[in-house]
């Protein structure tokens, strides 16, 4: 871990001006991802701007449209155990609790969860090539050990995945990211927040220089998915492991018919993977395996597996069908009983 200077931000404006004036500066809050990567020498910031004393980034509050606003500094565990969120957006509750561990969730923040880097062996090992860590050095995972890597939306530069569970649910719930920067505040729809690697895999998201995530908001109407939802995560051990494939599924049912649907995948792409076509294919249809399979096929269309991760395509298809079945039956996946209903 390199030496760096430390600045404890007093105000949001102070933090932004530090970030703008020093391109080598990075922001720190929960530390669970950044400190980890600094010890691997993957991140070597010249300055750390500590956001944790900024009260304006704290707190979970209700919004006028019946939705919720989650401050960027709110720890994952506060999101997970907030009763209002559990009532309105249980999909989010479940996704958060499917990720990491109680200790990590106590430290990791909402903003940090959005901005965590990838899960990739090569990104984490400075002795190997990685375009995300060191643009132009090559992608070690292509042709390498890539069982955990992306099958959708990858490029010939990078096949890393976004590691978050929380973000898969936020994507499915069409959350909005509030950011503040040198040019003022702006709101980014969640689906526009993360990006595919393309030929700039070093960029995980669409934040501009000096911008800081302030909060994530959930619209009131997203709470209509509070009855029929699930977060289904498949991994290499039953807890404390990243997703090989995860599915956030949420439905609004009108009798036996699907009135609205949300479907997002984790562990398969550089960002939570959604496609309006897949959701549209569900709307108006009767809930059932055939319909679910069609949606899965649309969502997975164009999947490009590598040497070791071809299984993810079929696994994702099956997981989507199962997740939609769980959602339709209003039997969300239990987090402690590992049997998959």
């Amino acid at each position: 871990m390199n030496r760096f200077s430390y600045h404890r931000a007093e105000t949001l404006a102070d933090a932004i001006s530090h970030l703008r004036s020093n391109p080598a500066a990075a922001i720190i809050a929960g530390g669970t991802n950044l400190v980890d990567l600094m010890k691997y020498e993957v991140e070597r910031p010249g300055e750390l701007v500590d956001l944790t004393r900024l009260d304006e980034l704290r707190g979970i509050s209700e919004t006028p449209d019946g939705g919720m606003r989650i401050g960027a500094l709110v720890p994952n565990s506060d999101v997970a155990y907030d009763e209002r969120i559990a009532k309105l957006y249980p999909l989010l509750t479940h996704a958060v609790l499917a990720g990491a561990t109680p200790q990590l969730r106590n430290a990791a923040t909402t903003g940090g969860n959005l901005n965590q880097r990838t899960r990739c062996y090569y990104f984490n090992d400075v002795a190997t090539p990685c375009n995300k860590r060191e643009p132009g050095s090559g992608c070690g995972a292509i042709g390498g050990v890539n069982r955990i890597h992306a099958i959708l939306g990858a490029s010939d530069q990078c096949i890393a995945t976004h590691p978050s569970d929380m973000c898969v649910a936020l994507s499915a719930l069409d959350a909005t990211v509030e950011v503040a920067g040198p040019d003022g505040e702006r709101r980014i729809s969640f689906r526009e927040y993360h990006r595919l690697p393309g030929d700039e895999p070093q960029r995980d998201n669409t934040l501009r220089q000096g911008e800081i995530v302030v909060a994530v908001t959930l619209a009131g109407e997203a709470s209509y998915f509070a009855e029929n939802y699930t977060y289904l995560k498949l991994r290499d051990r039953l807890s404390y492991a990243f997703a090989l494939v995860s599915v956030a599924a949420a439905l609004q049912l009108d009798g036996g018919r699907i009135a609205a649907a949300r479907l997002a995948l984790g562990g398969v792409s550089h960002m939570p993977w959604r496609k309006p076509d897949a959701e549209n294919a569900l709307v108006g249809m009767a809930a059932g395996e055939e319909t679910f399979t069609r949606a899965a096929d649309i969502l997975l269309a164009g999947a490009q597996p590598h040497e070791h991760n071809a299984f993810k395509v079929d696994l994702a298809r099956r997981a989507i069908v199962r997740a939609l079945t769980q959602a339709a039956a209003a039997t969300p996946q239990s987090l402690s009983d590992k049997r998959i209903a």
Binding site: Y121, T128, V145, I148, A241
Partner: peptide, 30 residues
């Protein structure tokens, strides 16, 4: 039986999952 495996990139001759996040030993839930 289910979890443990040291993964090597044979092109690099290097172990790649050199962490407890990626070399899985059973957790309590298992």
């Amino acid at each position: 039986a289910l979890h443990e495996e040291t993964l090597t990139d044979h092109r690099l001759g290097r172990i790649m999952n050199h962490s407890l996040a990626e070399y899985h030993v059973p957790a309590n839930a298992d």
